[in-house]
Write a protein that binds this DNA or RNA. Structure first.
Lengths: 192, 192
DNA sequence: GTCTATAAATGGATAGAC
DNA sequence: GTCTATCCATTTATAGAC
C-alpha cells in the first residue's frame, strides 16, 4: 500500500474515533457532519472524500464494533471448568459493553432512524454470534433456548448498568451470582 | 370542567396517540411536528396550542407510559404462591413491554437527544419502581441485589424479544423457565 | 383554535476552484 | 484533499390574521 492510501486510512480511523467521542457526549444521532469535521480540523465537504454519506459512517462504526467484540472475545483465556468459562465469558462481555454504552444502541437496538447495516457489516455481526454458539457447544450447552436465556441475562445486566447506574457497579456486583444461577439451571451435569 | 377544556384534553389525547403511532412506524426521533400535525388533520403551528414544545410531547408520552404500566401492574391478580406471583409479574410486564417497543426506548433508555423527563414525570417513574419493590417485599425478597437481578433478567428478555425477534415469541417461550431459575435461586425458603 | 407566512437554524450533500 | 459557496430540504418555533 502506498503512502497516500495509508494516510487516507489513517484519517478515516481518526474520523471514526472522533465520531465515537461525539457519540459519547451527545448521543448517536446528536452530532452533525459539520461537528464531526470541525472536531477533526477540517470542513464538512472534506468528509465526502472518506465516506459517501453519513449512514456509511454509521455502518463503519457498526462493523468495527462487532470486529472489536469478536477480537476481544477471542482473546479470552478460557478456564477448563464449564462454570468458570461462563463467568469469564459473562464478565468479559459485560466489561466490554459498559465501556461504551452508545455502541450498544448501534449494535443491538435500532436507534438510528433509517440506518440499516450493509451486508458485509451484518455478516460480521453474525460471525460474532456464531462464536458464542460454539463456545456454548464446547461446554455441552446446545439447547438454543439456553443460549437465548443467556443472551437475555447478560444483555439485561448490561443495559441496566448503563442506563440506571452509569459509571457505577451496581449490576456488576450481582453478575457472578447471576451466572451461578444460570449455571445451576443449565449446566445440569456439572454441579460444583 | 367545561366543554372547551374537555375538547382540549381530548385533542391532546388524540395527538399523543398519533405520536405513538408515528413512533411505532418511524422510531422515536423519526417524525416531525409537521407529520404529527398532518396525521391529525391540522397544521404544525396548531400543535403549540396543546404543547409548548416537542420535548413536552415526549414528556407527556414518558409520563403516560409509566402511569399506564403502574395501572396495568396494579390490576394484576396475584396468586398466593410466591413463585406463581413471580410468574404472573414477569409475564405481565413482558407482555405489556413488547406490545410497544419504542416505549421502552423512551422509558428505559436515553434515546432522544436532549430530552430529560420533567420532575413530575420522573416522580411517576419512581412510583412504579416502588410498587415493584413492595411486591417483592411481600414475598420475602428484601435483598436489593435480588431485585436488581430480577430487573436485569426481565428487561433483558424484553429487549432481546423486541430487537431480535419482533412480533415473535422466541424469548417469550423461555420466560417461564427463566423465572423458575430465578425462583430456585432467590426464593430460598419456598421450593416447590 | 386554526390558519398562512415566515423566521431562524440546521441538516446532509454537491459544484467547482485551488 | 481541502476549501468556499451554495443548494435544497427540513426542522422547531413564532407572528399575526381570521
Amino acid at each position: 500500500m502506498d503512502q497516500r492510501s495509508q494516510r487516507h486510512l489513517a484519517t478515516k480511523d481518526e474520523l471514526i474515533s472522533t465520531a465515537w467521542k461525539l457519540t459519547d457526549e451527545k448521543g448517536l444521532t446528536g452530532w452533525s457532519l459539520r461537528e464531526l469535521a470541525q472536531a477533526n480540523g477540517i470542513k464538512a465537504p472534506s468528509l465526502y472524500v472518506y465516506f459517501p454519506s453519513k449512514d456509511h459512517i454509521y455502518d463503519e462504526m457498526f462493523a468495527r464494533s462487532y470486529e472489536d467484540l469478536l477480537e476481544y472475545l477471542k482473546q479470552a483465556v478460557l478456564p477448563d471448568s464449564p462454570r468458570e468459562r461462563l463467568h469469564t465469558f459473562a464478565t468479559r462481555f459485560f466489561d466490554w459493553a459498559v465501556s461504551n454504552p452508545a455502541r450498544l444502541q448501534l449494535m443491538f437496538w435500532r436507534v438510528v432512524p433509517g440506518f440499516e447495516p450493509s451486508e458485509s457489516s451484518y455478516a460480521t455481526s453474525v460471525q460474532t454470534l456464531e462464536l458464542m454458539k460454539q463456545t456454548f457447544a464446547d461446554i455441552g450447552i446446545t439447547d438454543p433456548g439456553a443460549l437465548d436465556v443467556w443472551t437475555a441475562l447478560t444483555s439485561g445486566f448490561i443495559s441496566q448498568q448503563v442506563s440506571n447506574d452509569p459509571g457505577g457497579d451496581r449490576w456488576r456486583k450481582q453478575l457472578d451470582q447471576a451466572v451461578d444461577m444460570f449455571a445451576d439451571a443449565y449446566l445440569k451435569p456439572a454441579r460444583a
